[in-house]
């Protein structure tokens, strides 16, 4: 199914998704982060990016078009798992680390009396 029509559809949808993400963010910034609501922006932008990933995989890379032992698709699924472990794991670990280091650090200079107060008179 590698026809001019497939490529054109993929290009059209990708264009819409890109302009949509850009337009929504611009609207959000113009409305001083109130509309669309700030909390909704991250899920919206991620969803639009993932939708475009899917569209380009199907219409440009023709994933899933191959004959029965679908090795390309299998390998893609494996890469996806590795990417999820790598990115998800990194964010998880680093976030937990930052969280456990949140308590106030004692000021070493005061504790060790490195910069003593000037002597009185």
């Amino acid at each position: 199914m590698k026809t001019l029509r497939t490529y054109s559809i993929g290009f059209g949808i990708s264009l819409l998704l890109t302009l949509g993400a850009f337009g929504l963010l611009q609207e959000h910034l113009n409305n001083q982060h109130t509309f669309p609501p700030h909390s909704a922006m991250v899920p919206i932008l991620v969803a639009l990016a993932l939708a475009q990933l899917l569209v380009q995989l199907i219409f440009f890379l023709h994933l899933g078009d191959e004959d029965k032992p679908r090795w390309n698709l299998t390998l893609f699924a494996f890469a996806l798992i590795i990417v999820a472990i790598l990115v998800g794991g990194t964010l998880w670990i680093m976030h937990t680390l930052a969280h456990s280091q949140m308590q106030e650090q004692p000021d070493v200079r005061v504790e060790e009396n490195i910069f003593p107060q000037p002597p009185d008179e």
Partner: peptide, 26 residues
């Protein structure tokens, strides 16, 4: 062709996670 389409997909994610999220001031 595969390589070039792949690079465009990577760029979509740079566009979203670096630039759009940056403008969103996360």
């Amino acid at each position: 062709g595969l390589f070039w389409h792949f690079l465009d997909i990577i760029w979509i994610f740079i566009f979203t996670f670096v630039y759009l999220f940056g403008a969103l001031a996360l």
